[in-house]
Write a protein that binds this DNA or RNA. Structure first.
Lengths: 275, 275
DNA sequence: AAATGTGAAAACATTCACAGCT
DNA sequence: AGCTGTGAATGTTTTCACATTT
């Protein structure tokens, strides 16, 4: 998932495994919930259950942070909340800009989780002049022209891209040039960035496709033999396959594609993007 | 059980590694773009670059699907598009329901990538009576009461949850009871589901927190001195390490020794939710 | 000559199982 | 007695490097 792997051991093995880092937010959320209920301590077993992992993994994860538990007792909730927050860098406030205020960008701006927990939406940016000045989630949308100034004025180092795919790379470059070094990309495109810049990607259609894969497998497990086209082209000639043997109900309006067997790049539906 | 007895080599054996499955959509997108430009063949090197991975990994991934390339030449773009689509189950049409039509749900409904590529939004569902009947992305929002009927009538097996966190588990249970076996969860909560049900999670604030972790590390690399050095003490620490972002800083609760759970609520907000 | 497909090695991640602390 | 912290074992993923095929 994480793109851009530019981390070196440098000195001491100060490196927490990436897989562990990815779970820390999960633990933090579970701990925060416990904290709100004034639960003073929690065992690895309980916390693991709340976070949806197993306890051995959790203990191993925590062991990379240090020894923050008490044998025979468990972990002090408040203390652990603080330690993990610190490890994640959430004890400081991160100003964030969101570029692309379409449906998705607006949803992100309204997302409560942003405002809490160390992140602050410093600005909303969009290329559409019709949007600038309008207010979304209590924040005025500013025009793309201002991008560099906004980044600079606010000391922004984290940017969120929620533009159409076609605009993403360009926006990315401007963000990076202006000083942003971490990007959360919602546009369905691969961003190329210089070393030292981190990119994380959230891609709806990829998630759905992964689900479809497993769903299909479930189906064929119950009903083997119903597979599509069992014939295995044992590496024959790569023919211009007549694709999509539509065997299902009619798709919604015009998502069909003409599969002319003779030639033609025939539009495979473009990788569309978020609004 | 069952499964596992592979007759012959060469063919796809059961069990494509999960890491590979997660990359197939990426390859598919890159291939689709090539297809649109009428590029007939592509090498592992080129395709890997377009997908943002390295070529050895790509070849290994493809080797799990079968031998679809031609040595000395590369891969036939159209053919590979078809093979990967088939493997992912995209040669059939998957009806999907979206539950929770707030900001996020609406954004998802409008997301173009949904309609294309084998997915079809079969229904939008929300608990708010004020919304039902209203149209979003050309689809009428229906009330939660209809959930079971909708699932059943449309043969839905994939559900998307975009409700507030508090409602997610309940919605999940109803979806599962009605026959849904794959869930894409946008609510920031851990869903518990019976065996056989797949859940994937998309969590904005987790992604941001992971970025913050790396961002923090970058900052302390340039500006050692006030870093997070794990071997040392907890207690206070001079926040505001970042080069940029010298804005506010967060709470920073006491967190001395793990002992007194007396105080706690430092106005820590709940794990908020979308919509 | 060019590029795939794949064993084998290396790196990384998870799980086990228990010694050691409270 | 209970629960953490961690080496060792196991499993998974990535990378290497090259024989094989066109």
């Amino acid at each position: 998932m994480a793109t851009g792997r530019t981390h070196r051991p440098a000195t001491r093995s100060r490196g927490i495994p990436e897989a562990t880092v990815a779970r820390l937010p999960l633990y933090l959320r579970a701990l925060t919930a416990l904290s709100e209920r004034s639960v003073p301590t929690v065992s690895s077993e309980e916390l693991a259950a709340a976070a949806g992992v197993n306890s051995a993994k959790l203990r191993k994860d925590f062991s990379y942070l240090g020894s923050y538990g008490t044998r025979g007792v468990g972990y002090d909730v408040e203390y652990l909340v603080y330690q993990i927050s610190r490890e994640l860098g959430l004890t400081q406030d991160w100003p964030v800009v969101i570029v692309g205020i379409g449906n998705l960008g607006a949803a992100l701006a309204n997302y409560g989780g942003f405002a809490s927990r160390g992140f602050r939406v410093a600005a909303l940016i969009d290329a559409d002049p019709a949007l600038t000045g309008r207010t979304v989630a209590g924040i005025a949308v500013q025009h793309t022209d201002e991008l560099e100034k906004i980044i600079d004025d606010n000391g922004v180092s984290i940017g969120v891209i929620a533009t159409p795919a076609g605009a993403a790379q360009q926006v990315c470059e401007r963000l990076v040039a202006a000083g942003v070094t971490s990007i959360l990309n919602f546009a369905p495109t691969v961003l190329s960035v210089p070393d030292g810049v981190d990119v994380r990607k959230v891609d709806l259609s990829i998630e759905l496709q992964i689900l479809a894969f497993h769903e299909q497998r479930k189906a064929s497990e119950e009903n083997p033999g119903a597979g599509i086209d069992g014939s295995l082209p044992a590496a024959e000639e790569p023919p211009v396959v007549a694709k999509r043997a539509a065997r299902n109900q009619a798709p919604a309006a015009g998502a069909e594609r003409p599969a002319s067997p003779d030639q033609g790049p025939d539009g495979d539906v473009p990788a569309v993007m978020p609004a």
